[in-house]
Amino acid sequence: MGKVLVLHGPNLNLLGTREPEIYGCTTLSDINRMMAERAQAAGVAIDFFQSNHEGALVDAIQEARGRYDFIIFNAAAYTHYSIALRDAIAAVQIPVIEVHISNIHKREAFRHTSVLAPVVLGQICGLGTDSYMAALEAVIRKLAAKEEKGDAEA
């Protein structure tokens, strides 16, 4: 049906042990496994990439062009200041859903602003790991609608 890239930014490799009062006890592997199971059930191909390095994430976004239909992206701290990631998202013209485990709008003032928000399809935050699953459900529905529309035009 479609292909999705899930990008995880800095420090998300520490999920499960990093500030569990904010981020919970679910690990990044757990999140990837849950998403992979749901994607497989929906007939959607899904790949995952995590990096603590801004340039590696920029490279992943650029390399996604022509290969993926959607990107689900938790840019973590880069959300608030990475113009390089913002510009990469704008350049590739792949719909991106920005995801955050915590509600960035209820945290420190510097976390309230997303420089990515103006160039992404939407933002989901504050639902814990369900933020990722909500983004995946939205992608699955959009891919199904696109496929249905394509079939109707055939």
Rank of each mutant, 00 (worst) to 15 (best):
V44K: 07
T79L: 06
A76R: 01
K142P: 07
H80V: 10
A39V: 02
G122H: 04
R111I: 00
V99T: 10
E54Y: 01
A76D: 02
Q50P: 07
I22Q: 04
D59N: 11
H53L: 11
L143D: 00
K149G: 14
G66S: 08
Q40M: 15
Q50G: 00
Y68H: 12
E63V: 07
I124K: 13
R33V: 10
G55M: 06
C125I: 11
R86C: 08
M34H: 13
D47N: 13
I22T: 15
R141T: 14
F73A: 01
A90N: 09
I140W: 03
M133G: 08
F48C: 00
S114M: 03
E148V: 11
H100K: 13
V92E: 09
Y78H: 15
Q62F: 15
A60W: 04
D59S: 07
A45T: 07
G122R: 06
G43L: 09
D69W: 00
S114Y: 04
K149R: 15
S114I: 08
D69K: 01
I104S: 11
I124F: 14
A56E: 15
H80P: 04
S29L: 12
V119W: 02
I94P: 08
G126Y: 07
S102C: 13
Q50L: 05
A90S: 13
R38D: 08
D69I: 09
S131K: 05
D69S: 05
I72E: 02
H105N: 03
T26K: 13
E19D: 14
I140Y: 03
I72C: 00
Y132K: 06
V96Y: 05
F49A: 02
T26Y: 06
H80T: 09
E37L: 05
S131M: 09
G128P: 10
V119N: 02
T113N: 08
R33F: 12
A39F: 02
A41I: 04
Y81S: 04
T113E: 09
E21V: 05
E54H: 03
I101M: 03
Y132C: 04
F48G: 12
Y132F: 10
R67S: 11
I101T: 08
A135P: 10
Q62C: 02
E19M: 14
I46Y: 11
L121T: 14
D47S: 07
Y23V: 05
L116M: 11
D130C: 08
T129Y: 13
R65L: 14
A56T: 09
A134L: 12
I72Q: 01
A41K: 15
E21S: 12
H105V: 06
E148T: 15
F48A: 01
S102Q: 07
I124D: 07
Y81Q: 00
E37V: 14
A91D: 04
L143W: 02
Y132E: 05
V139P: 04
I72N: 00
I94C: 09
E98P: 05
I124E: 02
S82C: 08
I89F: 01
I22H: 04
Y78R: 05
E37R: 11
A135W: 07
T26E: 15
V119H: 06
S51P: 11
D69F: 02
V44S: 01
A76M: 06
F70R: 12
D87N: 13
A45P: 03
I83W: 12
E98D: 06
V58G: 08
I104R: 12
L143N: 09
E108N: 07
C125H: 15
